[in-house]
């Protein structure tokens, strides 16, 4: 039986609604797709992933000069922070 996901922006804001009608605590082929959808980023989450990050400062400098744009540098001490924060 397919489970129904209650999903809306209001739900996101209130955040207290229940995700599924029955507890999907035993992973199986029936709840596989629903659980995956609930785990993956939802609208409005992790918006920094909407930015087309480059990983090379050299390439950013080259493209900035070629396209006439300034360079926004996001740095972290443990790795590229768009992935590790």
């Amino acid at each position: 039986m397919k489970r129904t996901v209650v999903w809306s922006w209001g739900w996101m804001l209130l955040g207290a609604a229940v995700l599924s009608a029955r507890p999907p605590q035993s992973l199986n082929a029936d709840n596989y797709a629903t659980l995956r959808q609930q785990i993956k980023p939802q609208p409005g989450e992790s918006r920094y992933w909407e930015i087309p990050w480059l990983l090379s400062l050299d390439e950013a400098l080259r493209r900035g000069a070629a396209e006439g744009k300034p360079i926004f540098v996001f740095s972290g001490a443990g790795g590229p922070p768009h992935a590790f924060c």
Binding site: L57, I71, F72, S75
Partner: peptide, 24 residues
């Protein structure tokens, strides 16, 4: 912090790069 306004500003006006500071 990464609001719609911030994302739009960055996408439209900047080249954005994400780096490991220790390597750089």
């Amino acid at each position: 912090m990464w609001t719609g306004e911030v994302v739009k500003l960055l996408r439209e006006n900047f080249i954005c790069v994400s780096v490991d500071s220790r390597s750089e």
